[in-house]
Design a binder for these strands. Sequence first.
DNA 1: TATGAATGAGAATTCATTCAT
DNA 2: GATGAATGAATTCTCATTCAT
Lengths: 207, 207, 207, 207
Amino acid sequence: MSKLSKKERIVLEAKKMFAQNGYAQTIMDDLAQAADVNKATIYYHFKDKATLYETLFLEGVQKIADRVIEQTDEQTHPQEKLAVYIKVYATSLQECYHLSSILLREIASGGDSMPSSVLAQLLRTTKRLTEILEMCAEKNGGVCYEPMVIQLMIISTLSSFITTKPIRKRVKEELDSSAPTLPALKLEDIAEKLTFMIYASLQKGEK
Amino acid sequence: MSKLSKKERIVLEAKKMFAQNGYAQTIMDDLAQAADVNKATIYYHFKDKATLYETLFLEGVQKIADRVIEQTDEQTHPQEKLAVYIKVYATSLQECYHLSSILLREIASGGDSMPSSVLAQLLRTTKRLTEILEMCAEKNGGVCYEPMVIQLMIISTLSSFITTKPIRKRVKEELDSSAPTLPALKLEDIAEKLTFMIYASLQKGEK
Amino acid sequence: MSKLSKKERIVLEAKKMFAQNGYAQTIMDDLAQAADVNKATIYYHFKDKATLYETLFLEGVQKIADRVIEQTDEQTHPQEKLAVYIKVYATSLQECYHLSSILLREIASGGDSMPSSVLAQLLRTTKRLTEILEMCAEKNGGVCYEPMVIQLMIISTLSSFITTKPIRKRVKEELDSSAPTLPALKLEDIAEKLTFMIYASLQKGEK
Amino acid sequence: MSKLSKKERIVLEAKKMFAQNGYAQTIMDDLAQAADVNKATIYYHFKDKATLYETLFLEGVQKIADRVIEQTDEQTHPQEKLAVYIKVYATSLQECYHLSSILLREIASGGDSMPSSVLAQLLRTTKRLTEILEMCAEKNGGVCYEPMVIQLMIISTLSSFITTKPIRKRVKEELDSSAPTLPALKLEDIAEKLTFMIYASLQKGEK
DNA sequence: TATGAATGAGAATTCATTCAT
DNA sequence: GATGAATGAATTCTCATTCAT
């Protein structure tokens, strides 16, 4: 059933580890152990650590880009396209959970070391977002400012939400123990709020 | 004037390098070279790499917390408090630019490895934000959900904006060369939009 | 015609690589690639790397030994035998060009790691050389000192000449570009000079 | 007295090992052990294995070049210059015994991988040899052919003689046990014979 | 206050070889 | 005959840290 090939096990564990520990602190020895393969087996399947990283990164980003483009195509109204854009990003990032960490770290580095293949995929979605934002703006008589910034806000907000789930829980338990527990926000709520805000910012009169 | 002491040079370069490369990829050898001091000199001034990191991190976060608390105190209206909260965060992160990268990376790691002294400072501002949000909610008859998530959205959005400035510029030049240059969003615009959105989300009727 | 079997391709490329890079720096992976066979195929045909090396080495040395012995047998005068000995070595080394490199490297290592089967073949020729030198010495009333040293001088001089042909050409072009090109020495000239010198050294009175 | 610094010990042992085992089979771990230093100490003093190799190689070749040039300067007659040239090469190679192996191996590789700094030093002596040979040729009314080939003959003959001393002894004991031991040739004898032969080859009438 | 020398504990990568098919 | 997958045993190189001066 769940009989994964060695290569698949490597990929699976690598995703976990790169997300959990980052690139540098992901140790090939540990990865081999976690995937229950010999260290050399990793090198049989992937040229080196950087290539492994890029492969996983690219694969994830590509999947997101494909989905985003496909599903926004299916919508007709600009606002719906925007909502879907953000929602698909949200669910995809949650599913390929390792991507959130990786993207945030790349953003932290200013994106300098992002493989160009990955950047290209991200820009596919940025292009789509630009189209959507322009449609929205046109419809509302507003103007669309720097879609790349909007893109960034979407990705970083959703990703932070995903990666910090454990610590948020821990902190809340430690600190708010006495306070009445507030209703928890879910990822979909965040997505909705983002949609609302971005759409609103494109209204006529909004600076 | 610009005659910095060795210790100051270490601190200066360390900020740059931790921000640019992250903790693990910041190499003490390189730092020594960049600061033009002997490697052992770093260890004369700082116990070890982790301490150096924490020192810089804590110093920055503390400064932000102090400012945020002080300046929100000066405001009377809830909405103004919120606006100032976000604006002070924005300007402080821009000033201590290395903090943006560092915070994003900690977020990427889920915050697990964040020194508790740093976390304490961050929570000081989270507490203040909670108070502000509650005031706003109360005034508007709305409800405030998980201030920590709002906090996260503020920090990650502002930080991403700051850290990606260079790459955004580069990408725009490469891709949009023909397109009419859209008005550039400035950090203050982002801060304002965030304020607007967060405030709006606390209105009565907003889910 | 030029359709070589896999085994032949392996042998062909192995000769090139052992000659070019030496034993240790010849990598089985590279060899497989160069021969356009799967790595395991090499092991199907040859027990291991050492065996492959020895096979090629022995084959070449044996061929030389056979030729040297056969052709010196055909001569009657000692001096002619000597001339033929050296000439056959020269032409054989040039033909099995990879042997020159391999022999030089073995000499560089002091011959310690030379397979004994190979050494045995070499000694067949050394024995023949000894006989020839003794004949020459006897005829001239001189004495023959350490034929092994003479053997070494012959092999190393001829081999160096063969292996360095490309670099000699390159250096000459870079440096002597202005100078009048001197007549180029050919391998046969070297062989003749060696013969002359060795014979002369066996004259009476020559120390 | 013989208190060598760690760096000196590394250099000393490295010379031995590169000569004995060649570049690839010289293991940094073994070297560290032989020099009785920590592995990392080697890397503190030398960038990497290749740099260590080149350093030693260059240092040795430079010393030879300096000596050869200085001592041939002191001679006045062409033939004496030639004799000194060869003799200094002989004694220097014997003294810096590791160079013989290294040079032979480089020759075996066709000189392709010889660092250009080393090549430059070798060419200094080749230039000097060219001058000497031209003087000799002029005096004798003969012609000088390709000094580089002469150079090669000198180096490879002397070097082979030096590197094979142990095996020659061993083979002689195993094989010639019954035969009357012939007078052993010494390095100086080889040097003299080379001088004689090369000089003779420059006589008028000699092709 | 500062540093050149040194090191222990890793960590990435390589490579000859094997084995099931 | 041939090969894709896999691996054990190295091997090079790195890096935070220490120490004598």
